[in-house]
Design a protein around this nucleic acid. Structure first.
Length: 420
RNA sequence: GGAGGUUUCGCCUAGUCCGGUCUAUGGCGCCGCACUGCUAAUGCGGUUUGGGUCUUAAGCCCAUCCGGGGUUCAAAUCCCCGAACCUCCGCCA
């Protein structure tokens, strides 16, 4: 949620941000006008209410005719107060509803435009030159007995799979290595709920009503998370944190669930795009003034992981139109996928500034003792999708796969060998 | 799934039976000041959160006693619905 005060003081900032995203900036005027009308209604309600209270008090002191006269007047006022309150609540509700649809204000420096207008910040490593025709991750995974899509489909439907044998070991090793790195960096490891209440989902910036990506359990009014960012963001909801505890960093391990509605025909092969996968996610609550630095730190930890698994990748600065609801800035790391001859996203780190904390009411006390909203950031340390890049980039002509050195102690194998 | 209990401004707590004097009591903690060789102790004052008004500040005002709704001129207090926690019973991994 954006800040109403900032909006009043500097509406042009939001206008510029909306244009950078390629979205309608007329919403700014709608917000300003609604805000003004709501404040007028609120003031009128409050002064009526003040009068009602003071008359109410004198009722208890008066007696006889005087009391009756006051009672009549109070009755009349009570009706007026009720009407004024309803009017103010009506406008307040409209304003809340509207402001909840406004995406975060884009950070200065983020590229303008849509999906294809990203800026490549860095390329690390070079795609390997194969002296044989590289197999894709599914063929490798099947030969290794690591990935079973067919039975995934039999048991649960399309875009579901089993990781088995060395596949299961590879994922466990990878995610454990991510956890290990996070712990060494001072993160608190977390295993989170994957079903959350609507307010946790919405507080994090997902719109339950319109987001067809979310699995819903209407019977229980619970929602399956697409990332542990959701439970981690909501973890400190309605709390005022001690300023000295910032930045407060958590590493969450969870399964993630995505309906992938509207992506029919896209990435249908293998485990690139699936309904359920596992992920280790970094999450940081930090001082708003430090969020840009913290964002760079999260990016550095992502790169450290990518270096450990010895993958060629590039870092992109996502364009404003592709940031989503909550992010003010987003950096993705994309690894080279030999079978596709292109880079695919393996990590994504977002600076959500105070957007989520304002919705979730996560605050800290500033030096004057006043509560202020913290900044929240998130970033990927490892996911199931990494297996795709690891298998393909480290494959050998015979279909075996060399486990990156840093990963070996976690997987317990140096080379993954095809089944006989 | 059923029965009962609990929920008050950081923590603990009074108030709820019997509506107005609750502008919510007291203790702890915290902050400031005073006193004091130092520390401690003591005394005094402050200390929920959000919002409106206001150039700023002060001040004033509104809301806030788990959440929502209702009764009433008036609700922490009465009624209804819900949530969380605790105890017991049932059922099931």
């Amino acid at each position: 949620m954006i800040d109403l005060r900032t909006l009043r003081d500097d509406p042009d900032r939001l206008r510029a941000s909306q244009r950078a995203r390629g979205e309608d900036d007329s919403i700014v005027d709608a917000l300003l006008s609604l805000d003004e009308r709501r404040r007028a209604a609120l003031t009128s309600f409050e002064s009526l209410r003040a009068e009602q209270k003071s008359i109410g008090k004198s009722v208890s002191r008066a007696s006889g005719d005087e009391r009756q006269a006051l009672l009549d007047r109070a009755k009349d006022l009570a009706a007026q107060v009720k009407a004024a309150e309803a009017a103010s609540e009506q406008l307040g509700g409209e304003l809340d509803e509207l402001i909840m649809t406004v995406p975060n204000i884009v950070e200065e420096g983020a590229p303008h435009g849509g999906e294809d207008d990203y800026v490549v910040l860095e390329e690390v490593g070079t795609p390997r030159a194969f002296d044989f025709t590289p197999r894709d991750h599914l063929e490798l995974g099947e030969r290794l007995g690591a990935i079973d899509m067919e039975r995934g489909a039999k048991v649960s439907g399309s875009r579901f799979f089993f990781l088995r044998g060395v596949g299961a070991r590879l994922q466990l090793g990878l995610l454990n290595m991510a956890m290990q790195q996070a712990i060494e960096a001072g993160f608190t490891p977390m295993i989170t709920p994957v079903l959350v209440k609507p307010e946790s989902m919405q507080g994090t910036g997902f719109t339950i009503a319109h987001d067809s990506e979310i699995y819903q359990l209407p019977e229980d009014d619970l929602y399956l998370v697409g990332t542990s960012e959701v439970p981690l963001a909501a973890y400190h909801a309605d709390e005022i944190l001690d300023q000295s505890s910032l930045p407060s960093r958590y590493a969450g391990w969870s399964s993630c669930f995505r309906r992938e509605a509207g992506s029919y025909g896209k990435d249908t092969r293998g485990i690139i795009r699936v309904h359920q996968f596992d992920k280790v996610e970094m999450f940081s609550f930090c001082h708003p003034e430090e969020s840009a630095e913290e964002h760079r730190r999260l990016l550095a930890w992502e790169k450290e992981m990518l270096d450990k698994v010895e993958l060629p990748y590039r870092v992109i600065d996502t364009a404003a139109g592709d940031l989503g609801m909550s992010a003010a800035r987003k950096f993705d790391c994309e690894a080279w996928i030999p079978s596709q001859g292109r880079y695919r996203e393996l990590t994504s780190t977002s600076n959500c500034t105070q957007f989520q904390s304002r919705r979730l009411k996560v605050r800290y006390r500033d030096d004057e003792g006043r509560p202020q909203h913290v900044a929240t950031l998130n970033g990927t340390l490892a996911t199931t999708r990494w297996i795709v890049a690891i298998l393909e980039n480290h494959q050998q002509a015979d279909g075996s796969v060399v486990v990156p050195k840093a990963l070996r102690p976690f997987v317990g194998l140096d080379v993954l060998e095809p089944l006989k």
